[in-house]
Nucleic acid binder design. Structure first.
Lengths: 338, 338
DNA sequence: TCTTGGCACTCCATGGTCACGAGTGCCAGC
DNA sequence: GCTGGCACTCGTGACCATGGAGTGCCAAGA
């Protein structure tokens, strides 16, 4: 059913619709693309494409627009990933260089991505559980109060207050700090629970309470939902959504404010390679008229977190995918260097 | 010119317009408020109010809507701050309790404020320069690489990498850490530069380079723009802006993404007491059709940062001001406790 | 079997007219 | 100084006619 030309027609429809935001008709198609056939033939092809569910008409006697299924086919079969131009690559470098800490890196990334794609950008902070421990610090702030600071190889810093059952001496604290670090430094956070399991036992009875409390807080921090932070930007680009936008923009903004929703969204993306979720493929109700392009990034081979963009299903997929991939690679490099 | 009744008419117009979002006419006014006079009289009063610039008509033969100047008078003279209801107070407590760290406190605050006011909430992180130092930590991560961690009494933690000119021994680092802390702990960050000024001189020549580098980074961190972080939320409430909203919402979203703009906005607010900036009173171009209600908050008497909301000029000022004030007080309490 | 030109049909968008109603300003009378 | 009355303005919504873009279908040609 779907011969070469029909696919070509679909590609042309997607490209034109993305460009003009208007339903595209058979005549316009033959004029703007060298299909080598007449409008009538294109009409037949369009009817076939519509039968298969790849395109639809908003109403009779209007042009066609791609359906989610149509975009899916376009992304899977018809379009590649468009590499960035040299000026664009240079812009990425200029923009990212000079970041002072992880917050800054993430902040710049989100702004950069929003600017390049002209869509809403979402960047997840490097996950704790997938990072490795660079250092664990314990600070005595008051006799029975300790501050726990975790530092990852990706530069992320997490801190928690610990209220101890009894006053803690500096020596005991230094002892715990040393033993703790010798066990976990360089290891992955995911492995920490196991590594510190028997630590309390090796302490004097009087200190065991404190040690357990500190460790409990440490483990809590690792599993806590807040470990999965993220940053979003470019929401102003939502206004480029389309005409019907008051209806569409609301649920999108709401979804974007729910960290849980976004984390789930990114979580659904594959760990490696790029993931594109189109329209109704997104589980969340408010996002059924948006597409999400996400990819993992990391300092090494393994992804420590994900980043991506959220935009209208009518988006420039090749360009967006190219930008997302390029940014992810560059951020990975920066993390590896630091 | 502006006798008691005319002020009463203005108040009624503001209240009705805020409620209905529609220009309000003389007849509707007399029906919904006990003004004790006829529509014709109200019309005369309205004409006077219009002459003075407090109200305007979108077009001839339409009702009146308040101007920025009208809202200003309303806020200054005609409306108080509406205290929160008991359930609302309880909701604040429930919502804020259980915050684990400063990020969490700020995050909860912004969500709470957005929910209470149904507007966009902006919360500034406690400023470094106005906080006092709880602890300065130096961690040796590599021979010539030190991580500097600042901890404030408000729970804020800031960290920076320092690349030292030469390898640093643990003893030298411990020495610097001890001397640094003995000088600055409990002091205000603003005073730190002066307090550490002569510190390098008291070290051996060989360590002076390192000491200077570390101190330079410390001072840099204090003045850096990034010290002024903030969090925003409730942007979905922008969709309740009005009918003409595609035009209005765009610049607002853009302004909200520019931290600089927002910081300036909050910075313009008075240090003590509540500040209300209405429409064109806001310097930033994109925000001329919004009002900003801001207030300082802090753990003690002094404000360490500000928070507020951004909404349409047509907002419920008494209610919004009440919510903002209540939230600020509660956050202050939480910071004081921690 | 596929392609093509022709043709009738559908339906949206545009723009004009018209009646309605809400609201105003003004004035004369109380 | 307040009030009722009255003429006037203007935006809104309904209705209708027109034009044009686009379609589906069909018969003829390659």
């Amino acid at each position: 059913m779907l011969n070469e030309r029909r696919l070509e027609v679909l590609r042309a429809i997607v490209q034109d619709y993305v460009g003009t935001e208007e339903p595209v008709g058979s005549k316009a198609l033959t004029e703007r693309h060298q299909l080598g056939v007449s409008p009538a033939t294109v009409r037949n092809d369009m009817a076939a494409l519509e039968d298969e569910g790849f395109i639809a008409q908003p109403h009779t006697s209007a042009g066609r627009i791609p359906t989610d299924k149509g975009y899916r086919l376009f992304v899977d079969k018809l379009a590649g990933v468009k590499p960035l131009s040299t000026p664009e690559r240079r812009a990425i470098q200029n923009f990212m260089d000079g970041a002072v800490d992880l917050d800054d890196v993430v902040g710049r990334t989100v702004r950069l991505l929003a600017q390049l794609t002209r869509q809403v950008a979402v960047v997840q902070y490097p996950s704790l559980t997938r990072s490795t421990v660079r250092h664990v610090e314990l600070l005595s702030l008051a006799p029975a109060r300790v501050m726990l600071v975790l530092i990852t190889d990706t530069g992320r810093v997490e801190q928690r207050m610990v209220d101890c059952p009894s006053p803690v001496g500096e020596t005991a604290l230094a002892d715990l700090r040393a033993r703790l670090n010798s066990r976990v430094v360089g290891r992955r956070f995911a492995d920490v629970p196991q590594l510190v399991q028997d630590l309390p036992e090796s302490f004097e009875t009087e200190d065991r309470g404190t040690v357990s409390t500190v460790l409990a807080t440490l483990l809590e921090t690792l599993v806590e939902e807040t470990e999965e932070r993220l940053m979003i930007g470019g929401t102003a680009n939502l206004t480029r959504f389309g005409h019907d936008f008051p209806l569409v923009i609301r649920p999108v903004l709401e979804a974007l404010e729910e960290q849980v929703v976004l984390l789930k969204l990114l979580g659904e993306a594959k760990d490696s390679g790029m993931t594109v979720r189109i329209g109704h493929e997104n589980a969340h109700e408010g996002l059924t008229s948006t597409s999400v392009v996400a990819v993992g990034y990391g300092s090494g081979d393994e992804a420590v977190a994900k980043l991506g963009v959220v935009g209208p299903t009518r988006m420039d997929y090749p360009g967006t995918m190219g930008a997302v991939r390029a940014v992810a690679r560059y951020v990975g490099q920066i993390l590896a260097e630091s």
